[in-house]
Design a protein around this nucleic acid. Structure first.
Lengths: 292, 292
DNA sequence: AATCTGTCTATTGTGGATAAAAGACAAATA
DNA sequence: TATTTGTCTTTTATCCACAATAGACAGATT
């Protein structure tokens, strides 16, 4: 196997949804645009649609013959890119316990366990190393530095520096900047979720990322924005494997966000700084509590 | 070719120097320790020494037969690791002109140009991407973001945040901390170079890195320390290809360092902050001046 | 008893091959 | 004229193979 055709499979599934809502499909370039893939892939999808008797395809005429059934879709396991699979598998190992700091990481073993070639694992580890959780010994193994208390403290220290700086930029943004609209949308989502917190508290994680990324982006500094990747991945997996008091924790964070958002809106740097500091402080506590 | 034997060649050259100063070589593990390589490599070196009639080797007896001649050494081009070669080649392309922002980077083309496989180039690009100068479009090319004025400003903004924070940690270090001794050594080097600035100004670059890295390390924060890699590589290549007024610039920076060092020694956070700020400000100006 | 050497195995670094995906260009169509 | 399609070429993502290097262990040596 050379390349996984996950791009094809994922686009195929998404294209089935487009198909379900129309009687004839648009042009190839248009479909490519909509699905975010090249025409080559679009044509492969159309070819397969034809084989599956989902459409007839003659040049510009792509007529829908029938509605897609559940088993027309590729199973979701097959649509994840290899990088995603490796990441998940690896994060489970190191965050969900059983991995002591100082442990050696073996490319070959990891590859075998995941059922993939070493090159992909290797590339993943190189990419992942910027998160500061592993370290390479050239010509030898990788070392797991572990998701420790020190790691969390170092991470949050930088996070606080960056977010305070970003919040200061945010309040200085002109009213015409699109960030204010996005901020309003995010604020509205907060109210929606809070109104039905018992059922929707799980949506917090995604909203949290969206909000903080918006703030970081206003720094207009690629290093600050890129650093948010680290925060993002840590909190993402952290939320996923640490569900104690999730409802209560999330409710509190939502309230803090609302205060923070209001402070940003005031254009008052001092107020924004205080609200930011307060929220980041409690976010840090939450993170630390989950580390033994 | 599977793996370059640069580790062997480099260790071989260094081992020749050990050999030049003794009449019989120490044990294999001891040599491995001294050279920073495994016993396997040490044994390969000893075997080659024997072939070259540099020593006789019988178990623990490794008797030196003759002094190494210049042509016993491997040429230096052969001792650089592939990663170093790729890095240099790539940095020359993007810093030494001819590379417009927005340009596409082609793995295959780069590999051919450097005379290496695509895997190595690819891994280099992944590692390098954390420096914020290039960006990946999955399933497609890389994009050169370029060594622009924005890049320099974003870089120095974060640098200033981090170094100010580190300097504040530094003044709080207990007198017993080894950093104070290293600081004294660095200070002494400054005086030495300044005393003979016309001949030795080129040594500044290395000393500069050593000094700032020491400061960053006192933050005890892996993200701050790791970030110094970016500063380091940028200034390293920048110094190399931009020699206008080098003597004068370096002399000024050395003076600023000395003031900065004295301020750190005073344990006065306020003074240290001022000295740090002053130096970083002029470092930024220097960097910006060299960008069109 | 501690260290060293001989031997063997396991893992990393790197080039090469190949399917998937992107993309270029000219002819066809509306 | 502006898109769209058919066809072809180029490039990336991935696996595999193999030499270089690291590392483990038992027996030899001091």
């Amino acid at each position: 196997m050379a390349k996984q055709n996950t791009v094809f499979k994922d686009a195929y599934n998404r294209c089935l949804k487009v198909l379900a809502e129309t009687s004839s499909l648009p042009s190839e370039p248009e479909l490519g645009q909509a699905l975010g893939v090249s025409r080559t892939t679009v044509r492969a999808i159309l070819g397969r649609f034809e084989e599956a008797k989902l459409i007839t395809w003659d040049k510009r005429k792509k007529i829908v013959l029938r509605q897609p059934q559940p088993d027309d879709y590729f199973p979701t396991e097959e649509t994840d890119s290899l990088a995603e699979i490796i990441e998940r598998s690896f994060m489970r190992r190191i965050l969900a316990g059983g991995a002591e700091p100082g442990m050696q990481i073996n490319e070959l073993e990891l590859a075998r366990e995941i059922g993939t070639g070493t090159t992909s694992v290797r590339e993943f580890l190189i990419r992942f190393s910027r998160f500061g959780l592993i370290e390479k010994r050239p010509n030898s193994h990788w070392i797991l530095k572990g998701f420790t208390r020190e790691f969390a403290l170092e991470l949050t220290e930088v996070r606080e520096m960056f977010e305070l700086r970003s919040a200061a930029s945010f309040v200085a943004l002109p009213d015409s900047h699109s960030a204010w609209q996005e901020l309003s949308r995010i604020e509205a989502m907060h109210h929606e979720i809070l109104a039905d917190i018992d059922n929707r508290y799980k949506e917090f994680s995604e909203l949290d990322e969206r909000f903080h990324l918006l703030v970081h982006k206003s720094s207009s500094n690629r290093f600050i924005v890129d650093f948010y990747d680290i925060i993002s991945i840590v909190f993402h997996y952290h939320y996923q494997w640490n569900k104690t008091n999730a409802r209560q924790r999330n409710a509190r964070a939502l309230e803090e966000h609302l205060a923070y958002i209001e402070a940003l809106r005031s254009h008052d740097a001092k107020r924004a700084e205080e609200a930011c500091r307060r929220h980041l402080h409690s976010a840090r506590e939450t993170l630390l509590q989950s580390i033994p």
